[in-house]
Structure formats: C-alpha cells, structure tokens
Amino acid sequence: MSPSAPRGGGGPRRSGGRGAAGGGRPSRGSAARPARSTGGGKPPRERRGAAKRMTDEIAPAPQPPRRGPGAGAPRGGQVHDPEGVRLQKVLAMAGAGSRRACEEMIAAGRVTVDGEVVTELGVRIDPRTQVVHVDGLRFAVDDDLVYIAVNKPKGVVSTMYDEQGRLNLADMVGPREERLFHVGRLDMDTEGLILLTNDGALAHRLQHPSYGVPKTYLAEVRGPVKRDLGKALREGVELEDGPVAVDSFRLVDSKPGYALVEVVLHEGRKHVVRRLLEAEGYPVLRLVRTQLGPIVLGDLKPGKNRRLTRGELQQLMAVAGL
C-alpha cells in the first residue's frame, strides 16, 4: 500500500495529525529527516569549472552541519551576530577577493572569527567589534578605522593640535571626521615616517617596546666614524635613564668630514637615537625615520601623506601580534 493512499479506499485522510500518515509516527528517513541548512535560505549553487577546481585544490569542501526543524541561526559558535553582515560580504569588502572566492575560503576552513574557524556561509558578524583572520593573517574589516603614513618635515610638531599655532600633524592630513592620533613621536628637528590612526589597539602595540616593532633611522653625523661604533651600539650604551642597545647598525655612506649611518632599534624613549650617537661622540646633524616595522617611507615627499595598502596593514598587524 502506498503511504499516501487512504486506507481501505475510504474518504480523504485527516490533516493536522502528528504523523505523516493516518496520525501515526513518522517513518525513519522521511518526515523526521532534518532539513539541510544553507545559511542563506536558498540551496547552495553547485560549483563547477575553475571554482570547483580551486576548492578541491585547497581542501575538501566541508559539509554544513545538519539541523533539525525549528533550528535558529547558522552554527558559528559565539561569533554569529544575527544583526551583523554576512562574513563573505565583509571579506569581499575588505579586499580578500570576490564574493565567490571568499565563500570558497570560508568553506575550506581558512577563515577564523575571534579565533574560531567558521565554515558556514550563513554566519553574520559585526565588523566593528570582531576580529577576522584568513590563513592566519588579520584583515581590517572595520571601514571606520583609518591608517595613514605621513612624511613629517623638520619643524612640524608631532601633535594633532598645538596651542602655540605651530605646524602640526593635523596640517599634514587636513580636516578629517575621525579622531586620529599619532603612533609615537618625532621631535621637531627629526623628519620622516610617522603613522596616524584611530586604531588604539594597534597603536599601543606599535609603540610599546615589549612588542619589539623595529624603527629604522638614517642619521647624518661628522665623519669618519670609528670601526667599532656598531659593536658598541649593539652591546649597549649607558644613558642617564638606563642602558640602550640597538638592534642593528651599518655605515651607509662616508665622505671627508661626513658619514651617513643607519640605526635600527625598538626603543621609544625621547631623543634616543640622538642621545645614543652623541654619547659615542657623534652629535646628529640630521635625522630621518625611514621605516616603522614593515612600513617604508619610500618616495613619499615631505609634508605628504598616503593611506596604507591592505598588504602593508596585514604585515603591520602581523608584527604587532594582532
């Protein structure tokens, strides 16, 4: 007898019963089978051609977990935010790739949110508060965060406002809606790279010496310099506020009466490079910061600024341990 046929050829079967047929209990494998979730309310589109090959090469696409009738939001542990934005859309907007490529990354288990691997396409997140990594690299998914590199000229004050009306960093970037603050300081006579951001967590790590983010300086001094200057600086120099050692030192150029040296260190004390070299008998004539972590000053002209690229920002977060 067909399960859908009325018993004994009688009248139509009553609806509204608990079971699938005649009010009985549902049979295994039929009505009791939980519906398969796709997260978006539509059946997943079958991957074909290049998209399928890319997924197969990365990892077998995991099957989304089954959920019974009445199940709520997609399973994303504690990371799912019903009021948030779909994870694949957030990644695409952050430059991780096309929407389809981001879906492939998620399905392959390459994406984490707040440290938890997410493989369902239905998961939503809050880009302003949650941390997203792809293949271990953090993606800046909050569009409200700003990261700017500035080439500070000599004579500019390393503040965003100066009561005396002197040129300051705010004059280098013009009026902005965000409340930016500088990562570290450069004294008025020091030129070069300084970062402006409203990302407090990143700024703290870049400035704190315990995170070991290196800073590179070019210093012009009276030459010639002694052969063992680099060794002395690497071993450490005693200053009035304690010993300081550089991470590396090299002679870049030398002419009669002139020398250009490069100093790399992760200290952030006031005038530390000037004081180090002067303590060894080489007062600084000109000082330029050329690099902060992976960010290079390059050909950015004095007084100009630029936004960090996505690649630079990922590298910066990596060295800061974010």
Rank of each mutant, 00 (worst) to 15 (best):
P214Y: 07
V272Y: 00
N198E: 07
E178Q: 10
S254Q: 13
L195H: 02
D228R: 15
E240K: 06
F181E: 12
E177W: 12
I194P: 01
T197K: 04
K270H: 12
H208M: 10
R205K: 06
G257Q: 10
E280I: 10
Y258G: 10
V263A: 08
N198A: 13
R227N: 14
L180I: 07
F249P: 01
E280T: 12
L193S: 00
R227F: 13
V225P: 04
H271C: 03
E191M: 06
M188Q: 12
E280H: 15
V183G: 00
V263L: 08
G200R: 05
E191A: 06
N198C: 12
P175D: 05
E240N: 06
R222W: 11
Y217V: 02
D171L: 05
L169D: 02
D171C: 04
L233A: 13
R234K: 15
L229P: 06
R179Y: 07
E267G: 00
D253K: 13
G192W: 00
K231E: 15
L169Y: 05
H266S: 04
I194K: 00
V221T: 07
G200N: 01
R234M: 14
K255M: 12
G174R: 07
G223N: 09
E220D: 14
L206I: 03
A170L: 14
D241E: 04
F249M: 10
L260N: 03
V252P: 01
G192C: 00
L195R: 01
R179H: 11
